[in-house]
Each structure stands twice: as structure tokens, then as C-alpha cells.
Amino acid sequence: MASNTAAANGLSRFLSDLGHSFRIFLRNLTRNKVGFVGTLMILGFIFLAFIMPYFVPAPHKADITKIYERPSREHLLGTDSQGKDIWAQIVHGGRDIVVMAFLTGMIATFIGVSLGSLSAVIGGPLDSFLTTLADVWLTIPRFPLLAVLAGLITLNNIITLALILAVLSWAGLYRAIRAQVFSIKERDYIEAATALGLGLRHIIFSEILPNMMAYIAINFTLAMTAAIYAQVGLVFLGLVPLTRNWGVMINLAWTQGAIFFRDSIYFIMAPVVAIALFQLSIVWMSRSLEEIFNPRLRAGR
């Protein structure tokens, strides 16, 4: 009986704690107006790419009698050069890009964080080797290298593409993380942890990482935007064969000369606007992330 009430008390306290931190989270999220709008837009894009396809039928059948139609109730954004619905193509073409961007961001952040903290904590020859390699790596123009790679291997699935993009962008992240770990490493509480003999893993994951969340979040979004830039760019150039995404739509509109027809403006503008807005919302969201993960920024006001 007594233990029961104790458990109930614990649960309710836990729930109220949760509610409290959720309220704090929401307050921080809405503190930066631009960041909040960006976060809402990201949620909107996730909804568009993952939920909407269940409601909008896939644009399979071509209809030659309906080429380049203006927007109507039947075709929200009109039709393309084959009479396919453009809105349906937008709905079904987002998933690839969203998944790939998140995947690249995750892998790139993982590589950057682990190499960066290892390098800064261990130091010595490993550190100087990695720093030199990063310096060299940063001078190699990434997009041309990617384009050349696309000519040598077939990059037709998003996981391979995400892996390659992440590996190509390791150096910038590594540098940022390493510098950050270096500055945190010198602080007193790390010295205390070392003196207590808490072990390398504990120091990295429990002492250093939580203090760098703002940096990691920003770099995560940077990796995401770079990934979208590269993927859509490659697809637009016609170098990477992927089915059904916004980059493919631009490429199709381009190769079929859609930009030169007056009525085809929706065909080219729909994917262009989608990509531009998605990029913009990621950049805007990063401001909110900064706000959430960096308490010092909040205290300063």
C-alpha cells in the first residue's frame, strides 16, 4: 500500500518534471522567432514527405491530352510535359531528399565528433596526423570530386550517397569539434574528472559532449544543407540516376525545355521552391537549436 503510493508519487513527480522540461523546451524553441518558424517548416516538410504520400496517389500514368495544364482543383500545381500531376510528384519526391539529408548529417556528425574528440583528448602524433589530413582535405573542391566519383561508380542508392557525402565532409566538422574539445578540455571540471580517474569514455561522453551540443547541432545542420546541395546538384546535372525526387524533377523540366514554355512555370518552379524552402528551414531551425543547447546564450539576455 505504502510502496504503491510512493510509486504513484514518483510517477506523478516524474510526469510533472517531464511537463516542466517540455515547457522549458517549448519556451526556448519559441524564443527565437525565426528559429521557431524554421522548426515548424521542417515539421511541415517531414509531414509532406512521409505522411502525405498515403493521401496523394503516386503520379504514374502519363496523359498526353493534359500537357502543361494550369493549376486547377484536380491538379493543384498543374501538370508536367507528360500530363502528370506536379503536386503528386512534389509529395512523392521529398522522402529521398529528407532521408538522405538526415542520414548524411548523422554519419558526418558521428565521424566528426569521434575523430575530433579523440584527436583533442589523445593528442600527440594522431592529432597532428589528423589535423594535417583535414587541412589537405579541406582544399579539395568537394563538388567536383563528387561529380568525378559519380562518373566512376554508380551512386544510385541513397545510403551509398549519404555515406560518401558524409566521408567527404568530415574535415570541416572535425576541425570545429577538435577546437571546441580543446577549449573545454582545459576547464577545471575536466581536470577534476581526470583526477577522479573517471576514464576516457566517461570524460568524452558525459563531461565534454553535453557541453558541445550547440556546436554539434549547428554542424549537423551544416552537413545536412551541404548534402542537399550536393545531391540535388548531381541529380540536376544528370550524373546520378535516382527516381522521383525534386532534383530529378528539375532535371526533367530542364532537359525537356520546360523553362522556355510560358505554361510550364509550375513544372520547374515547384521543385525549385521546395528545395529552396527546405534549405532555408534547416538554416533557420539551427538558430533555435543554438538557443536550446547553449544556455549561456540565454543567460546573456
Partner: peptide
């Protein structure tokens, strides 16, 4: 924040065609 090729396409579509 917007990719450079998006800006290029916009310039071409609006300044050049529309």
C-alpha cells in the same frame, strides 16, 4: 542559405524567359 544553382535557375527563368 539558398543553393547557387537555384539562384541561377531563377535568374534564367524570370529575367530570361518570363
Amino acid at each position: 542559405s539558398v543553393p547557387d544553382y537555384i539562384i541561377g535557375i531563377l535568374l534564367l527563368v524570370y529575367l530570361g524567359v518570363r
